Simulated assay, not measured.
Amino acid sequence: MKKQSTDLLELPAGWLSPSPESARQFEQELQRELCPQHVLYNVPAQAVGRKDRRDDFLFKIPDNCFAQVHLTWRQETDPFWPATDLFSSFEAWKTSLDDEDFD
């Protein structure tokens, strides 16, 4: 099966595409932080975006779904951390941003 490219994702203003090296670091950090009860534990996740100057990241997960995760930069024992919102598609994620408060 051919791996689907994420290069075609048009991130909204305020979101940046990570370099391949940074993406690997963010993916490793995500796995380091997760406890076994977390919804993303053992789920393959590909870093595809980071909110500019924030610890919020967008990961592509199986079935063309997406997870927005607020990394904490520490190993967690609470399954609610790192805070994670799941989305059924890239468009669903982008639509959810319209509901956020402006910084």
Rank of each mutant, 00 (worst) to 15 (best):
K60V: 03
K94T: 02
A13H: 09
S89D: 11
R32T: 07
R24Y: 03
D56P: 03
P20V: 04
A23S: 11
L97K: 10
E100H: 13
F59L: 01
G49Y: 13
K2V: 08
A92G: 07
E10Y: 08
T77M: 12
V39C: 15
L86W: 10
T95K: 14
Q28Y: 09
L34A: 03
Q4H: 07
S96H: 14
P82T: 02
F90V: 04
G14P: 03
H38K: 07
W15V: 00
Q31S: 12
F66K: 07
Q31C: 12
D103S: 11
D63L: 05
W81S: 06
D56T: 10
R74I: 05
I61D: 04
T95L: 06
F59N: 00
K60L: 08
A47F: 13
D98I: 06
E76C: 14
Q75E: 14
N64Y: 04
F57D: 00
N64H: 11
P12R: 05
P82R: 02
K2H: 12
K94D: 00
P44F: 04
K94W: 01
W73K: 08
E100F: 10
D98N: 15
R50T: 04
K94G: 01
Q68S: 10
N64E: 15
W81P: 02
L86V: 08
V43A: 05
S19E: 05
R74V: 11
P12W: 14
W81M: 07
S88E: 13
F102I: 09
R74C: 09
K2I: 05
D52S: 02
E100N: 10
A67K: 11
F80C: 11
F66M: 07
T84H: 06
V39Q: 15
F66D: 01
Q46T: 11
L34Q: 05
A83I: 04
N64L: 09
Q46R: 09
T6G: 02
A13F: 09
L86N: 08
D56Q: 13
S5F: 01
K60T: 00
S22C: 05
F87D: 01
A92F: 02
Q31G: 02
D101S: 10
C65E: 10
R74F: 12
V69F: 13
K51D: 05
D55C: 08
L16T: 07
P36A: 13
W81D: 06
V48F: 14
F26T: 02
P12A: 06
T77I: 11
